[in-house]
Design a protein around this nucleic acid. Structure first.
Length: 264
DNA sequence: ATGCCGTATGATATACGA
């Protein structure tokens, strides 16, 4: 059965309900993986999301920060949220979809401002989080299972994943150490970068544009921070991977555009 | 470009995002 799956850092789900409604009408995803919901589970807007046609929901949120959700039109089982690096800070949710596809939704730590793990604990946390993802990946790589990993991974690994590779070499999300770590996660888990199977690595591809640059569309100062990965068992079903850049133009948008994976 | 802007909070300033 074909599957359309979207991943979107909404930067507060309660501030983005209208955009969710519009996006669902356009993209009609079977599954929506959200990050930065910024809401505790008891305050999650279940009724509004149910009305969008998502009767199956896994939520893992906290006050003010982080938070993930998986919203689905099809049933799933085995809802799990892992406390990576020993912190139960709502950065991961996984479920098993019909057809036995294991789905993982991640929100990797941003890492603060200073890309120095000695001086910046947030950056150290980000690197440790990526190391933990790689360690986990090693344990499941090559087991032949159908698996999808999506989310805001907060790293732009390729030179073409940022608007200016040289200018961003010392900026968090595109430092050599982060790029190496994320590539390490990809390799350790034997993941396939679905976006880069569809869009050649030579082409620039972005999913995030800073709020702080008013001229973001003209200058296209973007980065690819949101990712769609699949296991080799799903390789033959890969049909599309798209960035809904237009959503970033809507009034009062998230700074992330939704990304959509299409499987046949 | 340590500035640009958006969201959340026991808020009218501060933390955080990346």
């Amino acid at each position: 059965m074909p599957l359309t799956l979207a991943s979107w850092n909404v930067n507060s789900i309660r501030s983005r309900l209208d955009h969710l409604r519009r996006f669902v009408e356009i993209a009609q995803p079977d599954v929506l993986c959200l990050q930065e919901t910024k809401v505790t589970d008891d305050l999650f807007p279940h009724l509004e999301i149910e009305a969008l046609g998502y009767p199956y929901r896994a939520v893992k949120g906290m006050k003010s920060y982080n938070g993930t959700a998986i919203l689905s039109r099809r049933p799933f089982t085995s809802q799990i949220s892992t406390a990576w690096c020993g912190r139960d800070d709502c950065r991961h949710l996984s479920v098993v979809m019909d057809g036995d596809i294991e789905l993982h939704n991640f929100y990797v730590p941003a890492g603060g401002d200073l890309p120095d793990a000695e001086k910046n604990p947030k950056f150290a946390h980000k690197l440790a989080f990526l190391d933990a993802m790689a360690d986990w990946g090693r344990t499941i790589a090559n087991d032949g299972k159908q698996r999808i990993l999506v989310g805001d991974l907060n790293v732009a690994p390729l030179e073409t994943d940022v608007w200016d590779h040289k200018k961003l070499a010392r900026v968090i999300t595109h430092t050599p150490i982060e790029r190496d770590r994320l590539t390490g996660v990809l390799k350790a888990g034997n993941w396939i970068d679905a976006q880069r199977r569809i869009v050649p690595p030579e082409e620039k591809l972005f999913t995030w544009w800073s709020y702080r640059n008013r001229n973001w569309p003209e200058e296209d100062k973007g980065r690819r921070l949101d990712h769609l990965w699949i296991s080799p068992a799903l390789e033959d079903r890969l049909a599309s991977a798209t960035v809904h850049r237009d959503v970033r133009f809507w009034e009062k948008p998230s700074d992330h555009a939704p990304v959509v994976l299409g499987l046949t």
